[in-house]
């Protein structure tokens, strides 16, 4: 059987569990909405325009939400020991990684969309720029967040420090994503020409593709004893 088909089966299974369980998704959604709400109070908008800070806040909210969610990606797998049975099927480890990353990506997309809506609403950002351009920036950024979160979410399972370890491992690695993502999104908000943005987006794609390939290649070291 095609490994991509197996990865797809894992994605479907994870999403079905995600929407039935709801815990991780609800927690992430609550976080992004509350963060947007609190930022609206924390910012003195007579001194700072919402549009000037929305990009940075959006990417930080995405980072914190995805990292918090990453710690629970493997909860359903470990709950009854199902993961060891999944690993005993002929599925390859890269396919397991791709399947779980794709499911994580869908969740991050939902959270990102909600974060975008809540931040622009709470910060009163009326001129948002092109939504297509926002999507073009956010797509590679979220792929990088999903792949990194899935990989280190698994790694944190092996550590006695658990979820505490996740930000320590992921935040330094994700500095390029946050930097290029936030600056690109800021320029989209300011409706700057795409030529000023495309270079950063190419770097976001390079990070996304690199993190998916490296994660897939190394994942077996986190699963096989």
């Amino acid at each position: 059987m095609n490994e991509l088909r197996r990865a797809w089966l894992i994605t479907l299974k994870d999403l079905r569990l995600e929407f039935r369980t709801g815990g991780r998704l609800v927690a992430m959604i609550a976080f992004v909405v509350l963060a947007g709400f609190l930022f609206a109070f924390a910012l003195d908008r007579t001194a700072v325009a919402g549009r000037d800070v929305a990009a940075a806040l959006l990417w930080l909210v995405m980072l914190f939400a995805s990292t918090a969610g990453a710690g629970r990606i493997f909860d359903a797998e470990e709950e009854e020991g199902a993961f060891r049975h999944l690993l005993l099927t002929p599925v390859s480890r890269p396919a397991v990684f791709l399947g779980k990353t794709a499911a994580n990506l869908v969740v991050i997309w939902l959270v990102t969309a909600l974060a975008f809506i809540s931040l622009t609403a709470f910060l009163d950002v009326r001129d948002q720029g092109s939504l297509a351009a926002h999507a073009a920036v956010l797509l590679p950024g979220t792929i990088g967040l999903a792949a990194t979160g899935t990989f280190f979410g698994r790694m944190s399972r092996h550590s006695s420090l658990g979820d505490t370890l996740l930000p320590v491992l992921t935040f330094p690695l994700l500095v390029p994503v946050i930097y290029f993502g936030a600056t690109s999104t800021a320029r989209v908000f300011l409706e700057r020409p795409w030529t000023e943005i495309s270079g950063s987006v190419r770097l976001l794609w390079a990070f996304a593709v690199g993190s998916v390939f490296i994660g897939a290649a190394l994942f077996r070291h986190l699963t096989d004893e």
Partner: peptide
């Protein structure tokens, strides 16, 4: 393999 834990997804 049958292990002492069922190894099934509880919400499925």
């Amino acid at each position: 393999l049958v292990s002492h834990r069922a190894g099934l997804y509880r919400k499925l």
